[in-house]
Design a protein around this nucleic acid. Structure first.
Lengths: 235, 235
DNA sequence: ACATGAAAATGATCAGATCACTTGGTCATT
DNA sequence: AATGACCAAGTGATCTGATCATTTTCATGT
C-alpha cells in the first residue's frame, strides 16, 4: 500500500523545480545568497512567469528558497535538510500538544546524552549564550522572547550532539509548539526554575556526564509535561 | 537570531493558504476527498486564478493537497501533520546516511518500548501483515519491494506507540533512506536474519515486554549501522 | 448491456500589463 | 562631511483573459 509504484510522469513543474534546485547546487549558493530574478528564470527555462512562480512557491514551501518582495529570490535556510516541521501546521489540539511533549520527552534525553559525549564546541557556546539571553529576558520580563530562547536552548543542545539529522528532528518538534510554549511558560510560572534546570543540563553536558545529562533532560521535560497535564484537567 | 520578532505582515498568499486549509478543516475533508475547483476558489476568495494556484502549489509541496490534471483538487495525505520528510531532499551523502541511521538507532528503541506498553491493535496487525509480506518477497526475490516493506514495519512499529507525532518522526526518518535501504539490504545480504529480528521485535511488542522490545530494536539498528560503517571503510 | 464518442469540467500554461515594495543613488540641508 | 528627503530602476505580487491538455460524464448507437 506504500509502494510509490511504476512510472512517475514528471510534469513541467517537477522539472522546473528540480532544475532550479540543480542550478542552486551548481552555483554552490548557500542559504541567504541571492538567486535569480523571476523574469530571468522564466526566460532561462523558456516558460512563462506564472509557471516559474508556481515552481518557486513549491520550493518556498519547504524553505528551499525565499521570495522577498521588491528585492529578489534568495536561497532559503532549509536546502539540503532531510526532516522539517510542517510549515502549514495549524495550532495543535491539546491532545496533540501532550503527544508532542511526550515525543520530546522520549527523544531529547538520549540526544542530551549523546551531546555530552560529542560536545560540539560551537553548539556548547551557543547554549551558554542562550542561557545568558534567557536570564536577561527574565529580568526584563519579555516572556514572548523568553519562550523563543528557551526553545533555542533545546535546539542548541541537539546541535551539540554533532548529528545534524537529530538536530533537525529536535528542531522540527520544538518549532511546532513555540507559540504554545509561551502559554506553557505562563502557566508554569516559575521561569527561574526552568532556567536553573537548563543550566544544570548545560553543566552536565559540558562536563561530559552523559547519564546525568540524560536524566536531567528527562526530568525537565517530564516536569513540563506534568504541569500541562494537570492544567488540562483543571482549566 | 532565531526570533521571528515583531510584526508578521501576512501576505495575500499566506492568508489564502491558511484560509484554504481552514476551509478543508471546516468541511471535515479527509485525505483523498475532492476539494474545490481552482476557478471556484478564485471566485470564492475574490482573487485571480494564478494567485490561487500559487497558494495551492505551496500546499501541494507539503502534501496538504493534490492537483490532478483534468480531475480536480484533492486533499493530500499530509494534512494536519506536524513533522515531515523534506520532499525536495536529494540523496544523502554517505556521512549523512550514517548520521541518519544513528538517529534512528537513538530514537526507535524507546519508541519500541512505548509501543510495547501501548500496543495499538490496528498497528500490531499491520506489523504482522508487513512481516508476512516480507516473507513472501524474500521468497520471490523482489528486493526493491522488500526494502519498502521493511521500512513499513518500522513505521507500523512507531504507529503502535499510539503517539502520532512519534510516528511522524519515525516515518520522516525512514522515508529518506528508503532507496538507500535497498543497497543496505544488498550489502547486508542476510535478508532472512533481518526478518527474524523484525519478528522477534514484533513478538516482544505483542507480549508487552517493553525492555525486550527496546533492546531488540537497538541491537537490530546497531547491527545495520555496523554493517554500513564497515562497508564504507572497505568499499 | 456495451462500446463509442462528443461535450463539459477542470487543471496547465501562456502572454502582457499594472501595482507595490526594496534598494541604491542624487541632492539639498545642516 | 554627515544627514535626511526624494527619486528612479529593479523586482516581486497580482490581475485579466485566453488557449491547450486531460479527465470525467453522459447521451447515443449498436
Amino acid at each position: 500500500m506504500s509502494a510509490t509504484g511504476g512510472v512517475v510522469r514528471r510534469s513541467l513543474l517537477d522539472d522546473l523545480a528540480t532544475s532550479m534546485l540543480a542550478l542552486i547546487a551548481e552555483r554552490k549558493l548557500a542559504p541567504g545568497d541571492q538567486f535569480e530574478a523571476v523574469r530571468s528564470l522564466a526566460e532561462r527555462f523558456k516558460v512563462a512567469v506564472p509557471t516559474v512562480r508556481e515552481a518557486l512557491r513549491r520550493l518556498e514551501a519547504t524553505g528551499a528558497v525565499e521570495l522577498r518582495h521588491g528585492s529578489g529570490v534568495y536561497v532559503g535556510p532549509n536546502v539540503g535538510r532531510l526532516v522539517l516541521a510542517n510549515p502549514l501546521a495549524l495550532a495543535p489540539s491539546p491532545d496533540r500538544l501532550v503527544e508532542l511533549l511526550q515525543a520530546r520527552a522520549l527523544i531529547e534525553p538520549p540526544v542530551a546524552a549523546l551531546a555530552a559525549q560529542t560536545r560540539a564546541e560551537v553548539a556548547l557556546e551557543q547554549m551558554a549564550k542562550d542561557l545568558d539571553t534567557a536570564a536577561e529576558l527574565i529580568a526584563s520580563g519579555d516572556h514572548a522572547q523568553l519562550a523563543e530562547v528557551n526553545m533555542d536552548f533545546h535546539r542548541s543542545l541537539a546541535q551539540a550532539s554533532g548529528n545534524a539529522t537529530l538536530a533537525e528532528v529536535v528542531e522540527s518538534v520544538t518549532v511546532v509548539n513555540a507559540r504554545e510554549q509561551l502559554e506553557i511558560l505562563h502557566i508554569h510560572g516559575d521561569r527561574q526554575a526552568d532556567l536553573d534546570e537548563h543550566r544544570a543540563i548545560y553543566d552536565a553536558v559540558r562536563s561530559g556526564d552523559a547519564d546525568l545529562a540524560e536524566l536531567l533532560t528527562r526530568e525537565h521535560l517530564d516536569g513540563v509535561l506534568a504541569v500541562i497535564n494537570e492544567r488540562l484537567q483543571h482549566p
